[in-house]
Design a protein around this nucleic acid. Sequence first.
DNA 1: CGCTAACGTTAGCGCGAACTGACACTCGAA
DNA 2: TTCGAGTGTCAGTTCGCGCTAACGTTAGCG
Lengths: 129, 129
Amino acid sequence: MNGVPADQDERARDEQALDETMRALAEPRRRAILRLVAHEELAAGEIAAAFEVSRTAVSQHLTVLKGAGLLVERREGTRRLYRARPEGLAGLRDFLDEAWTASLDVARRLVEADRAQLVGGGQEVRDAG
Amino acid sequence: MNGVPADQDERARDEQALDETMRALAEPRRRAILRLVAHEELAAGEIAAAFEVSRTAVSQHLTVLKGAGLLVERREGTRRLYRARPEGLAGLRDFLDEAWTASLDVARRLVEADRAQLVGGGQEVRDAG
DNA sequence: CGCTAACGTTAGCGCGAACTGACACTCGAA
DNA sequence: TTCGAGTGTCAGTTCGCGCTAACGTTAGCG
């Protein structure tokens, strides 16, 4: 089951989810917010008090983070408590591991090709694909 | 050696480096480029041919990725070959692991607090900090 | 009901960033 | 040195996004 349209759709969906995660985490303040609620559950007001921007801005950041699945919201009276959602980082974790291993692999292959070139004396070595 | 100004500077430097990494990876095309050069070393023209945007745009993307330390450039005649640089992902890897473990920890503590509340019958349990 | 606290939402503004097109540069070959 | 291939760089435009201010909403109290 490789290369079928259903697999393409799944790939596209993963990419879209990863894109949302990355765009959410690309903002320094959103990373700071995530760090806060990763250590303890906090109310929107408490989170906003930790920064020097308006509560409106923080609320929008919380909306983005929640939309990316990086946060979960729990209501308690008029207050809204937020905490980090570890599973939201799974997609990014997969991407990172994949890129990491692939990068190490291409580096290893280049070293081998370079060594082969030194031994063989300039033969064709760039056909590895 | 904790909490001293030198540590703050190091923290700030790490955050800035992480910010550059995240902003570079926030762009879908840049992630696609990184995937390409993570599997094999490619020239700028070959990379550009893989997308439907102008070579100018791809060149700018390559500049950003190189600036973030995610790519290395190697010149061969008029061609410029690029390949992924695994160490550039180290900072993001650290952030991810930290956020992951912290999120799991706060989730575990909340479950314990909830269980204690069920057993104790509504006693004060939200002082865990 | 009126009132307040705690939030989210909308409209509008300003900045940064991604894209295109034109130009400049650097090799290698004739 | 003249030419073409392969790339980087510089304006200029468009567009997304983070911010603020004002308004709307919901929960709890008297």
